[in-house]
Design a protein around this nucleic acid. Sequence first.
RNA 1: GUGGGUAUAGUUCAGUGGCAGAACGCCAGACUGUGGCUCUGGAUGUCGUGGGUUCGACCCCCACUACCCACCCCA
Length: 432
Amino acid sequence: MAAVIKSVRGTRDILPPDTALWQFVEQAARDIFHRYDFQEIRTPIFEDTQLFARGVGEETDIVSKEMFTWEDRARAQSEKSQSLTLRPENTAGVVRAYIEHKMGDTGKLQKLYYIGPQFRRERPQKGRYRQFYQIGAEALGPPSAGSESPARDAEIISMLAHLLREVGIKEWTLQLNSVGCASDRARYNQALREALAGVKDEMCADCQRRAEINPLRVLDCKVPEDQPIIESLPKISEYLDDPCREHFNEVKKILNHVGIRYQVNERMVRGLDYYTRTTFEFTHGGLGAQSALLGGGRYDGLSEALGGPKAPGIGFALGLDRFVLALQAEETVGIPDLSPRVYIAPLGQGMNAEAAVIARDLRKQHIPTELGDETFRAKKSFEAAERGGAKYILFVGENEIASGQFALKELKTGEQIALKREEIALKLKTTT
RNA sequence: GUGGGUAUAGUUCAGUGGCAGAACGCCAGACUGUGGCUCUGGAUGUCGUGGGUUCGACCCCCACUACCCACCCCA
């Protein structure tokens, strides 16, 4: 017997009925995005490795150890091979497309969203996969289009709160921070390093390591004993320059005004280098250690880092795998039932053909219909209908053909009515 | 990349150094026109993979792989 081939580590199949849940989230997101005037962009699954090295940052974990990268072979001897990478995130690709198609030249603010798979070579665990799915949106453009305005930050955050409300996720918290501009962060990093030099010996092993490699990460430490020390460290807010501080204040003011609850979390640091000023994260309990449902922030310098024009922007990415987990944890209502609405039961010999005609007519009327096999046992039909999740069962047998009256029965209530053939579709359309 | 746990029927899981089990599900019959009940019968497995110990291994030992949880990282 041939060896069985299995899905590779960190990848998985999403099967029905879960796919219905995924479609529900995707549809809800598209719907909300359109209401906020975002339009879909689709960028390639793989890109030039340099895009991520320069965009996300050479030193980040994502780029330094989590990318699926390979050398594409050269087409001709005179040509060099090209290093390609499966996208580990989508913001860099969107900004690359923005630059490549000179979208900034319209003078318009570009409001774009995407839905698709991303790839990171991490060790899999709950809510974390090597091929995972993100829904994200980006608002970017020339400063003259208002792309730098704190109103954009607040709009994106409002839109997300709206989306969460729409799909029925209630147990979320919004963490908000400002990481300032590049120069602010450099000064802050320096200050942290100096402050840690004196105290790091008293901290956990992880923190001692972080203090050397990436002092910002110390702020993320959850070890209880370290907390007093962390509290005493300098705060990022003390290192924001005036424009950055004003920007952040304005974002908070708008959020207060529209009634969105948030916690300023000065210890929230993001792992992608391109973030500037506003950063945020929506978290959810019930996701285990991977509590970040969605996260995002501003990236005012990204376009220029990728060789493009000045194009400040803000965006977010939502982890669809985790989002679905959170939905399931909430036992949310409002998930569409994709089961057939009516099961057609051919009863008796030679009824398959009759049943097929009726099924065709119902399907033409957009009524989800499952067509059963003919049998002499009504019980079998009921069982098959039940299994398929149908709401109604319609018997098609000799008696019905002879009398022109078809018995339509609601499975749950047992209620039954007799209908003429042409009345069936109408009846099914008017009942929910 | 590191640590811990798990791997037995379609599913959830028991189990013992000596014949492979239960529940649910599935199939058939009782039962060829109105179910969800009941009764009877049935099928299902390289006991994750590869080695080792042993007269004998699903069980003990080693390695590997996968999954789960956590660290890390992030969405």
